[in-house]
Design a binder for these strands. Structure first.
Lengths: 90, 90
DNA sequence: GACAAAGTTTCCAATATTTGAAACATTATA
DNA sequence: TATAATGTTTCAAATATTGGAAACTTTGTC
């Protein structure tokens, strides 16, 4: 699961998905990368159980799965912030 | 930070450090890998602000930094468990 | 001072991950 | 049916990460 979270663009996707559902082509456009790469990144997030899909026609909508993922994110943010503060002190 | 968490052996180290402080040579022995690799993994955890060090003599003791790290862990565990449950249903 | 003990750093080989283009699959529409 | 739109998979090349041995630092001990 942490491996799924270990790439900047996948964090970017999760932040997008916090707002609302997005389909692959939209996220690809937002990130400025080809849809093949987008699809692969999203499938890693899905494998980790962090997002889920909902197919409508040719579209595949991705959305956040667990509410815990959001807790996880805010918790992680806390660690990062306190870490940054410490580094500034040095 | 998630990059720091994205290697099994570093998760193993964090779980060890949940109990108590350990020095590099002890963790190297526990994991069965050379101390050079151990040192490198631990420094990644330190860079991420997940652990901190306390030097005494030639020893370097590593310990968990933030209490939030533990929350993060239990939260992550929740995601993993619910994920596994879903997969079993299929 | 010489030596040992504990860690870190440096090097390069071995692995793993990511990337993008192209081929492929599926569904909708003219 | 032919074509377009959306995603996924496959492949090889490009990048990044990891692993281990050896050199090096620092501190403690004889």
């Amino acid at each position: 699961m942490f491996k799924a979270l270990s790439h900047p663009i996948r964090i970017f996707f999760l932040e997008k998905l916090k707002e609302k559902s997005w389909c692959v082509c939209q996220l690809a456009a937002e990130a400025g990368i080809p849809k093949s790469a987008t699809s692969k990144h999203l499938s890693q997030l899905k494998e980790a159980g962090l997002v889920e899909i909902h197919k409508t026609g040719t579209r595949v909508e991705y959305s956040i799965t667990a509410p815990c993922v959001l807790k996880l994110a805010s918790c992680a943010e806390g660690v990062v912030l306190s870490n940054r503060k410490k580094q500034l002190e040095l």
